[in-house]
Amino acid sequence: MKEISLWALYFTFFKIGGLTFGGGYAMLPLLQEEVVNRRQWASEEELLDMYAIGQVTPGIIAVNTATMVGYRKRGILGGVIATLGEISPSIIIITTLATILLRYKDAPYLQQAFSGIRIAVCATVTMSIIRLMKKSLVDLPTILLYLLVVASTVLFSLSPVIVVLVAILFGIVVQNIKHRKEGI
């Protein structure tokens, strides 16, 4: 098999990063087009597997998937290069925008616009949470865990790191109890 150049890896993921609006979930169709159809670096099934692993590992889903495709093709260096490609457009675009915005941050029209934008952001985040709750609160234990997390972070400002670790343990324990009950 012909070896894939690191440049091709960088460029392909640069394109994917630069054209994805809205993060991990919006990126799948682009990944399919570039990685499966155009470059034929992976089959449809392989890509979906890599994407699934990207969702269940820590970190940004898009970066996890990029690292995995790069690693499969060119080892550790390939993983690093694909990831650098994926994040390069963000760094360029955000740095440019931030430079402009911070220069004019005292302009009244910009402040007014951002006051409105902040309200819109509250609404889009609310929508994301509703979507997430529909998917994740599937029974009584998960609803209780959700309420417990909200209460403990708001009232006692519990660290999210501890929440994540406890939730992993909670999931394993509750599922084991469920399976044992079903087994009897």
Partner: peptide
Amino acid sequence: KHAFYGLRAAVAGLITFALLKLLSAT
């Protein structure tokens, strides 16, 4: 899979905490 059963609910809770911060500021 079992870990994610708990993790998903907790992540929804953590983002709700973030939303409450965002709402109280706005």
